[in-house]
Protein backbone atom coordinates (compact mmCIF):
# COMPACT_ATOMS: atom_id res chain seq x y z
CA UNK A 1 0.00 0.00 0.00
CA UNK A 2 2.82 2.42 0.88
CA UNK A 3 5.14 1.39 -1.97
CA UNK A 4 2.80 2.55 -4.72
CA UNK A 5 2.64 6.31 -3.94
CA UNK A 6 6.41 6.37 -3.39
CA UNK A 7 7.01 4.77 -6.78
CA UNK A 8 4.65 7.32 -8.35
CA UNK A 9 6.66 10.12 -6.76
CA UNK A 10 9.89 8.59 -7.96
CA UNK A 11 8.52 8.23 -11.48
CA UNK A 12 7.26 11.79 -11.44
CA UNK A 13 10.64 13.04 -10.27
CA UNK A 14 12.34 11.10 -13.05
CA UNK A 15 9.98 12.63 -15.58
CA UNK A 16 10.56 16.14 -14.32
CA UNK A 17 14.30 15.52 -14.47
CA UNK A 18 14.10 14.20 -18.00
CA UNK A 19 12.02 17.15 -19.13
CA UNK A 20 14.59 19.53 -17.68
CA UNK A 21 17.52 17.85 -19.39
CA UNK A 22 15.63 17.30 -22.66
CA UNK A 23 16.94 20.51 -24.30
CA UNK A 24 20.48 19.41 -23.54
CA UNK A 25 19.85 15.91 -24.87
CA UNK A 26 18.36 17.27 -28.09
CA UNK A 27 21.24 19.72 -28.54
CA UNK A 28 23.78 17.02 -27.72
CA UNK A 29 22.34 14.61 -30.24
CA UNK A 30 22.05 17.28 -32.96
CA UNK A 31 25.26 19.20 -32.48
CA UNK A 32 27.59 16.64 -30.91
CA UNK A 33 26.55 13.02 -31.41
CA UNK A 34 25.41 13.25 -35.03
CA UNK A 35 28.44 15.30 -36.17
CA UNK A 36 30.80 12.93 -34.32
CA UNK A 37 29.24 9.87 -35.94
CA UNK A 38 29.14 11.66 -39.28
CA UNK A 39 32.82 12.59 -38.94
CA UNK A 40 33.68 9.01 -38.10
CA UNK A 41 31.83 7.80 -41.19
CA UNK A 42 33.38 10.45 -43.45
CA UNK A 43 36.87 9.52 -42.30
CA UNK A 44 36.45 6.44 -44.49
CA UNK A 45 35.48 8.47 -47.55
CA UNK A 46 37.04 11.03 -49.87
CA UNK A 47 34.28 13.52 -49.07
CA UNK A 48 35.24 17.06 -50.03
CA UNK A 49 32.09 18.64 -48.59
CA UNK A 50 31.73 20.67 -51.75
CA UNK A 51 31.86 17.68 -54.07
CA UNK A 52 28.81 15.76 -55.12
CA UNK A 53 30.40 12.32 -55.45
CA UNK A 54 31.76 10.70 -52.32
CA UNK A 55 33.64 7.43 -52.53
CA UNK A 56 34.27 4.96 -49.76
CA UNK A 57 38.06 4.65 -49.48
CA UNK A 58 38.40 2.32 -46.52
CA UNK A 59 41.50 2.97 -44.40
CA UNK A 60 43.22 5.06 -47.08
CA UNK A 61 42.91 8.34 -45.15
CA UNK A 62 44.38 6.75 -42.03
CA UNK A 63 47.17 5.13 -44.03
CA UNK A 64 48.01 8.46 -45.65
CA UNK A 65 48.18 10.21 -42.27
CA UNK A 66 50.32 7.57 -40.62
CA UNK A 67 52.66 6.76 -43.49
CA UNK A 68 52.69 9.36 -46.26
CA UNK A 69 51.90 12.78 -44.86
CA UNK A 70 55.13 14.46 -43.68
CA UNK A 71 53.19 17.34 -42.14
CA UNK A 72 51.18 14.92 -40.01
CA UNK A 73 54.34 13.80 -38.22
CA UNK A 74 55.57 17.37 -37.93
CA UNK A 75 52.27 18.57 -36.50
CA UNK A 76 52.13 15.68 -34.01
CA UNK A 77 55.67 16.49 -32.84
CA UNK A 78 54.85 20.20 -32.50
CA UNK A 79 51.67 19.47 -30.57
CA UNK A 80 53.33 17.02 -28.17
CA UNK A 81 56.13 19.53 -27.55
CA UNK A 82 53.56 22.22 -26.86
CA UNK A 83 51.53 20.02 -24.51
CA UNK A 84 54.66 18.76 -22.75
CA UNK A 85 55.60 22.26 -21.70
CA UNK A 86 52.40 24.31 -21.66
CA UNK A 87 50.26 21.95 -19.56
CA UNK A 88 52.67 21.48 -16.60
CA UNK A 89 53.69 25.13 -16.79
CA UNK A 90 50.08 26.30 -16.86
CA UNK A 91 49.00 24.06 -14.01
CA UNK A 92 51.95 25.03 -11.84
CA UNK A 93 51.72 28.76 -12.52
CA UNK A 94 47.97 28.85 -11.96
CA UNK A 95 48.41 26.91 -8.72
CA UNK A 96 51.10 29.27 -7.43
CA UNK A 97 48.98 32.29 -8.36
CA UNK A 98 45.95 30.80 -6.63
CA UNK A 99 48.02 30.17 -3.50
CA UNK A 100 49.18 33.76 -3.50
CA UNK A 101 45.71 35.17 -4.13
CA UNK A 102 44.23 32.97 -1.43
CA UNK A 103 46.16 34.83 1.22
CA UNK A 104 44.35 37.50 3.22
CA UNK A 105 46.03 40.53 1.74
CA UNK A 106 44.58 43.93 0.82
CA UNK A 107 43.11 44.21 -2.63
CA UNK A 108 42.85 40.45 -3.20
CA UNK A 109 39.66 40.85 -5.21
CA UNK A 110 41.33 43.37 -7.48
CA UNK A 111 44.32 41.08 -8.05
CA UNK A 112 42.03 38.14 -8.78
CA UNK A 113 40.15 40.24 -11.34
CA UNK A 114 43.39 41.41 -12.94
CA UNK A 115 44.73 37.86 -13.27
CA UNK A 116 41.41 36.54 -14.54
CA UNK A 117 40.82 39.34 -17.04
CA UNK A 118 43.15 38.09 -19.82
CA UNK A 119 41.24 34.83 -20.08
CA UNK A 120 38.15 36.71 -21.25
CA UNK A 121 40.04 38.84 -23.80
CA UNK A 122 39.35 37.58 -27.35
CA UNK A 123 42.28 35.57 -28.71
CA UNK A 124 42.56 37.78 -31.80
CA UNK A 125 43.04 40.90 -29.68
CA UNK A 126 45.41 39.09 -27.34
CA UNK A 127 47.42 37.79 -30.28
CA UNK A 128 47.97 41.30 -31.63
CA UNK A 129 49.25 42.36 -28.20
CA UNK A 130 51.62 39.38 -28.11
CA UNK A 131 52.97 40.16 -31.57
CA UNK A 132 54.22 43.43 -30.10
CA UNK A 133 55.48 41.74 -26.93
CA UNK A 134 57.53 39.28 -28.97
CA UNK A 135 59.04 41.86 -31.36
CA UNK A 136 62.77 41.32 -31.66
CA UNK A 137 63.84 44.94 -31.71
CA UNK A 138 61.22 46.74 -29.61
CA UNK A 139 59.37 43.95 -27.81
CA UNK A 140 59.01 44.21 -24.05
CA UNK A 141 60.19 40.63 -23.55
CA UNK A 142 63.52 41.24 -25.26
CA UNK A 143 63.80 44.53 -23.43
CA UNK A 144 63.57 42.62 -20.13
CA UNK A 145 66.09 40.04 -21.34
CA UNK A 146 68.53 42.74 -22.33
CA UNK A 147 68.20 44.36 -18.89
CA UNK A 148 69.24 41.01 -17.45
CA UNK A 149 72.20 40.87 -19.81
CA UNK A 150 70.84 38.31 -22.26
CA UNK A 151 70.93 38.76 -26.04
CA UNK A 152 67.61 39.39 -27.81
CA UNK A 153 65.67 36.36 -29.02
CA UNK A 154 63.93 36.09 -32.37
CA UNK A 155 60.75 34.77 -30.82
CA UNK A 156 58.55 34.54 -33.87
CA UNK A 157 61.02 34.31 -36.73
CA UNK A 158 63.36 31.59 -35.47
CA UNK A 159 61.95 28.04 -35.74
CA UNK A 160 63.71 27.14 -32.48
CA UNK A 161 61.95 29.84 -30.48
CA UNK A 162 58.51 30.05 -32.07
CA UNK A 163 57.04 27.16 -30.07
CA UNK A 164 58.42 28.41 -26.73
CA UNK A 165 56.93 31.82 -27.59
CA UNK A 166 53.47 30.33 -28.02
CA UNK A 167 53.93 28.30 -24.83
CA UNK A 168 54.69 31.51 -22.95
CA UNK A 169 51.66 33.08 -24.56
CA UNK A 170 49.49 30.18 -23.35
CA UNK A 171 50.06 31.40 -19.79
CA UNK A 172 48.00 34.43 -20.71
CA UNK A 173 44.82 32.40 -20.32
CA UNK A 174 45.48 30.67 -17.00
CA UNK A 175 42.94 32.87 -15.21
CA UNK A 176 40.14 30.34 -15.44
CA UNK A 177 42.37 27.50 -14.14
CA UNK A 178 43.43 29.77 -11.30
CA UNK A 179 39.81 30.50 -10.35
CA UNK A 180 39.10 26.76 -10.11
CA UNK A 181 42.14 26.32 -7.86
CA UNK A 182 40.97 29.22 -5.71
CA UNK A 183 37.60 27.55 -5.25
CA UNK A 184 39.37 24.31 -4.31
CA UNK A 185 41.67 26.07 -1.85
CA UNK A 186 38.75 27.71 -0.12
CA UNK A 187 37.15 24.33 0.36
CA UNK A 188 40.03 23.02 2.51
CA UNK A 189 38.91 22.97 6.15
CA UNK A 190 40.78 25.56 8.20
CA UNK A 191 40.91 23.20 11.21
CA UNK A 192 43.45 21.03 9.42
CA UNK A 193 45.89 23.93 9.20
CA UNK A 194 45.21 24.90 12.80
CA UNK A 195 45.85 21.33 13.96
CA UNK A 196 49.08 21.24 11.94
CA UNK A 197 50.19 24.53 13.47
CA UNK A 198 49.57 23.12 16.94
CA UNK A 199 51.91 20.27 15.94
CA UNK A 200 54.49 22.85 14.85
CA UNK A 201 54.15 22.44 11.09
CA UNK A 202 55.88 25.04 8.90
CA UNK A 203 54.29 26.75 5.89
CA UNK A 204 56.07 24.45 3.46
CA UNK A 205 55.04 21.34 5.42
CA UNK A 206 51.41 22.49 5.47
CA UNK A 207 51.53 23.04 1.72
CA UNK A 208 52.99 19.61 0.99
CA UNK A 209 51.05 17.61 3.58
CA UNK A 210 47.68 19.36 3.57
CA UNK A 211 47.12 21.72 0.66
CA UNK A 212 48.53 19.66 -2.18
CA UNK A 213 46.90 16.32 -1.17
CA UNK A 214 43.53 17.96 -0.66
CA UNK A 215 43.86 19.83 -3.92
CA UNK A 216 44.60 16.72 -6.00
CA UNK A 217 40.98 16.34 -7.19
CA UNK A 218 41.12 19.92 -8.47
CA UNK A 219 44.57 19.38 -9.97
CA UNK A 220 43.25 16.24 -11.63
CA UNK A 221 40.31 18.13 -13.10
CA UNK A 222 42.53 20.95 -14.36
CA UNK A 223 45.03 18.48 -15.77
CA UNK A 224 42.37 16.75 -17.86
CA UNK A 225 40.82 20.02 -19.04
CA UNK A 226 44.20 21.58 -19.89
CA UNK A 227 45.32 18.45 -21.70
CA UNK A 228 42.21 18.41 -23.85
CA UNK A 229 42.47 22.12 -24.68
CA UNK A 230 46.24 21.93 -25.34
CA UNK A 231 45.64 19.22 -27.92
CA UNK A 232 43.33 21.67 -29.65
CA UNK A 233 45.77 24.60 -29.70
CA UNK A 234 44.93 26.57 -32.83
CA UNK A 235 44.12 30.27 -32.50
CA UNK A 236 47.53 31.57 -31.47
CA UNK A 237 49.34 29.73 -34.24
CA UNK A 238 46.67 30.57 -36.82
CA UNK A 239 46.78 34.29 -36.07
CA UNK A 240 50.37 34.96 -35.06
CA UNK A 241 52.57 32.56 -37.00
CA UNK A 242 50.30 30.83 -39.50
CA UNK A 243 52.14 27.62 -38.67
CA UNK A 244 55.59 29.05 -39.41
CA UNK A 245 58.42 29.75 -39.39
CA UNK A 246 59.29 26.64 -41.36
CA UNK A 247 56.33 24.68 -39.89
CA UNK A 248 57.66 25.04 -36.36
CA UNK A 249 54.19 26.00 -35.07
CA UNK A 250 52.15 23.84 -37.39
CA UNK A 251 50.04 22.24 -34.68
CA UNK A 252 47.75 19.30 -35.24
CA UNK A 253 44.57 21.38 -35.35
CA UNK A 254 46.10 23.79 -37.83
CA UNK A 255 47.04 20.91 -40.10
CA UNK A 256 43.52 19.56 -39.75
CA UNK A 257 42.05 22.99 -40.51
CA UNK A 258 44.18 23.38 -43.62
CA UNK A 259 43.00 20.06 -44.98
CA UNK A 260 39.37 20.76 -44.15
CA UNK A 261 38.91 24.39 -45.09
CA UNK A 262 41.75 25.24 -47.44
CA UNK A 263 42.07 22.03 -49.42
CA UNK A 264 38.46 20.92 -48.88
CA UNK A 265 39.66 17.39 -48.02
CA UNK A 266 36.98 16.75 -45.46
CA UNK A 267 37.37 12.97 -45.53
CA UNK A 268 41.06 13.20 -44.69
CA UNK A 269 40.43 15.93 -42.11
CA UNK A 270 37.78 13.70 -40.52
CA UNK A 271 40.36 10.91 -40.24
CA UNK A 272 42.74 13.35 -38.54
CA UNK A 273 39.93 14.35 -36.17
CA UNK A 274 39.17 10.72 -35.34
CA UNK A 275 42.85 10.05 -34.62
CA UNK A 276 42.95 13.11 -32.36
CA UNK A 277 39.81 11.93 -30.59
CA UNK A 278 41.33 8.49 -29.99
CA UNK A 279 44.56 9.93 -28.62
CA UNK A 280 42.81 12.42 -26.33
CA UNK A 281 40.36 9.77 -25.19
CA UNK A 282 43.16 7.28 -24.53
CA UNK A 283 45.24 9.81 -22.64
CA UNK A 284 42.29 10.97 -20.56
CA UNK A 285 41.49 7.36 -19.75
CA UNK A 286 45.11 6.79 -18.75
CA UNK A 287 45.12 9.84 -16.49
CA UNK A 288 41.79 8.76 -15.03
CA UNK A 289 42.96 5.18 -14.42
CA UNK A 290 46.14 6.33 -12.70
CA UNK A 291 44.31 8.93 -10.65
CA UNK A 292 43.54 6.52 -7.81
CA UNK A 293 47.28 6.46 -7.09
CA UNK A 294 47.65 10.17 -6.60
CA UNK A 295 44.23 11.80 -6.26
CA UNK A 296 42.96 11.97 -2.70
CA UNK A 297 39.20 12.17 -2.18
CA UNK A 298 38.62 12.96 1.48
Amino acid sequence: MTARPRSLRVRLRRWVGLVFIAPWIVAFVMFEAIPILSGFYHSFTDWSATGTATRFVGWANYREALTRDPLFQKSVYNTIYYIGFSVPLGILTAFILALLLNRPIRGTTLYRTIYYLPSVVPTVAASIVWIFIFETRRGILNFALELLGFPPIRWLSDPTWAKPALIIMSLWGIGSTMVIYLAGLQGIPQELYEAAEVDGATGWYKLIRITVPLMTPTIFFNLVMNLVSAFQVFNSAFIITGGGPFNSTLFYMLHLYNNAFRYFRMGYASALAVLLFLVVFGLTLFVYRTSDRWVYYS
Binding site: I131, T136, R154, L156, S157, P245
Partner: peptide, 12 residues
Protein backbone atom coordinates in the same frame (compact mmCIF):
# COMPACT_ATOMS: atom_id res chain seq x y z
CA UNK B 1 68.81 35.79 -43.58
CA UNK B 2 65.15 34.92 -43.54
CA UNK B 3 64.75 35.60 -39.79
CA UNK B 4 65.96 39.16 -40.29
CA UNK B 5 63.44 39.74 -43.04
CA UNK B 6 60.56 38.20 -41.06
CA UNK B 7 61.40 40.36 -38.05
CA UNK B 8 61.65 43.50 -40.14
CA UNK B 9 58.20 43.11 -41.62
CA UNK B 10 56.59 41.65 -38.48
CA UNK B 11 53.37 43.29 -37.40
CA UNK B 12 49.65 42.86 -37.26
Amino acid sequence: GVENVTDFFAGP
